[in-house]
């Protein structure tokens, strides 16, 4: 079975009313870079597709009332070239750059990457590191939830694309003491899923070198994007140095539980995630007041 109708609404209201009209038998499509591929092997069961890629309000990237908003249908390329995000969302920009290749980034969207719920999705990891909030509309109801709560398992999202529309992701505008970063290791720079990827957000104390609080998101270490909370706790109040990062690398290697896969063994991934943490933080803090030879 395949869809009989393909709609391209131009507003959020129109998309919602189409969902409502089809009573669960239509589903949303954003970039379609996953959906169109999946459809070949496992036909999509929907009577109609509702394409949200042409809705201007869903493509906006902006700042409002102390929060940064990234529209659901913003493409990875839009994120990469956004001056606002370059300044205030480095983890998301660097993650978006790592996705697929240019042709995929030009089409694939941030919301699509979250709803597809792959444990290694680069931008999903970045959004988890930012502890981003997902803004959802369903009928006349509007709700918000932490992005981490939407991941239920590999390919399984709590968001039902036949009923719920993600409108945006948002997070608090970072202060001058906040830093974010992203790193991934893969066989190739393009068109390769990562062996490991890691996104972090941290806030420093006034001395610019002591961690006040840190969030670390990693993939693919579990069935869903994983928050390394033990490592986060171990780094609280730590003054960052080569030696301390070395220690944190050992903690995270112990904390994660990757599986052996064709991309690499579990032991190798454990080792790599330690390297990833060290390197990601070092790149971001280098030349910014932290002395590595301490």
């Amino acid at each position: 079975m395949t869809w009989e109708n393909y709609y391209m609404p131009s507003s959020i209201e129109e998309a919602l009313s189409l969902l409502d009209k089809h009573q669960g038998e239509a589903r949303l499509i954003a970039g379609g870079t996953d959906l169109m591929v999946q459809h070949k092997s496992e036909p999509i069961e929907a009577k109609a597709l509702i394409d949200i890629g042409g809705i201007p309000d869903l493509k906006k990237i902006h700042e409002e009332n102390g929060r940064v908003y990234v529209g659901a249908a913003a493409t990875h390329s839009q994120v990469v070239s956004s001056p606002l995000l370059k300044e205030k969302g480095r983890v998301l920009v660097d993650a978006a750059k790592a996705v697929g290749a240019l042709q995929i980034r030009n089409v694939g969207t941030i919301a699509g990457n979250v709803v597809t719920a792959q444990p290694a999705a680069d931008t999903a990891i970045a959004l988890v590191a930012l502890d981003a909030c997902v803004h959802i509309q369903s009928g006349s109801e509007k709700l918000e939830k932490p992005v981490l709560d939407t991941f239920l398992g590999p390919g399984k999202s709590s968001i039902n694309p036949s009923k719920e529309l993600i409108t945006a992701f948002s997070y608090p505008t970072p202060t001058s003491l906040e830093r974010t970063g992203f790193i991934r290791f893969a066989r190739r720079d393009s068109l390769a899923l990562p062996l490991v990827n890691l996104g972090f957000w941290l806030i420093l104390k006034e001395d610019q070198k002591t961690v006040k609080e840190i969030r670390i998101a990693v993939g693919p270490m579990s069935t869903v994007p994983f928050r390394a909370r033990e490592t986060e706790a171990s780094m609280k109040d730590v003054q960052i140095s080569e030696e301390e990062l070395e220690k944190a690398g050992l903690v995270i290697a112990e904390e994660v539980t990757p599986r052996d896969s064709f991309r690499g063994s579990a032991d190798f991934k454990k080792y790599l995630i330690g390297v990833a943490l060290k390197r990601a933080i070092k790149v971001v803090l280098d030349g910014k007041g932290v002395d590595w030879d301490d």
């Binding site: 391209m8 379609g32 870079t33 169109m36 597709l49 042709q103 089409v107």
Partner: peptide, 11 residues
């Protein structure tokens, strides 16, 4: 630049 194999013609 886009991959036409994964773009719905409707778009």
């Amino acid at each position: 630049a886009v991959n036409s194999c994964i773009i719905p013609a409707a778009r």
